[in-house]
């Protein structure tokens, strides 16, 4: 999206087309990052349904495919909600390397 648009370039009223926030990346907010381990995933989708940032990527079969790090803020809800056992975690939190 064009930055610093002039008033003549703006849409009617204060209208803006849907979904433009997809261009705004909040991934750099993270201090911890969830790491997805596909081999352990049971596809319960609890992480996906509880993610506040729509940052759980589903594949074409609606199975968890990974984390969208463009948006993930590292809250860790996915990790908390993931029901997989300790020794075979599908999600783990790791410190973000900056």
């Amino acid at each position: 999206m064009k930055k610093n648009m002039g008033w003549k370039e703006l849409d009617f009223g204060d209208s803006v087309n849907a979904g433009t926030a997809a261009e705004f990346h909040t991934g750099d907010w993270r201090s911890d990052r969830p790491v997805f381990h596909k081999e352990n995933c049971i596809n319960c989708l609890f992480c996906w349904v509880n993610c506040p940032d729509s940052a759980i990527i589903l594949d074409e079969n609606n199975k968890v495919a990974g984390i969208d790090y463009r948006y993930c803020k590292g809250c860790g809800i996915c990790d908390t909600e993931c029901p997989t056992k300790k020794e075979k975690r599908a999600l783990t939190m790791e410190p973000e390397r900056k």
């Binding site: 009223g13 204060d14 209208s15 803006v16 087309n17 849907a18 979904g19």
Partner: peptide
């Protein structure tokens, strides 16, 4: 053509 109106400006 979904839109958002009344954004925070």
């Amino acid at each position: 053509k979904p839109i958002t109106l009344g954004s925070l400006d």
